[in-house]
């Protein structure tokens, strides 16, 4: 059961990294260079407000998810890992 979840998370993480690199203003970064626990905004990967909008759109278009409760936002948008967990737990 645990292994199964971890495998699914790995697939989601890989897809997320590919989407981030192809859709955001990440220059000269390959998907595999993004660490699972790297902070997305500010320090870390250095994403900005424009990228925030893009991630919201990515979540909706690719995973059918809409984040409405921004009380959770800080946790969800923290890293690829937290995003992947959110997608895994909420995907339809």
């Amino acid at each position: 059961m645990g292994d199964n979840k971890e495998q699914e998370l790995q697939v989601i993480r890989r897809k997320l990294k590919e989407l981030l690199v192809s859709h955001l203003s990440l220059e000269d970064i390959k998907p595999e260079e993004i660490k699972d626990d790297e902070i997305l905004f500010g320090e870390g990967l250095g994403l900005d407000s424009l990228d925030a909008v893009e991630i919201v759109v990515l979540l909706q278009r690719n995973f059918g998810l809409e984040v409405k409760d921004m009380n959770q936002g800080r946790k969800i948008f923290y890293s690829v890992d937290t995003l992947a967990n959110y997608i895994h737990d909420n995907k339809k």
């Binding site: 407000s49 984040v67 921004m70 800080r74």
Partner: peptide, 28 residues
């Protein structure tokens, strides 16, 4: 708030609501 209210704003617009912003203030 986190990400400057981006998520709430997008959600509101999708619901057909109006989101009012100041175009001369950066905020987030």
């Amino acid at each position: 708030g986190y990400l400057g209210g981006v998520v709430e704003s997008m959600s509101a617009l999708k619901n057909g609501d109006i989101v009012s912003l100041m175009g001369d203030r950066k905020y987030g």
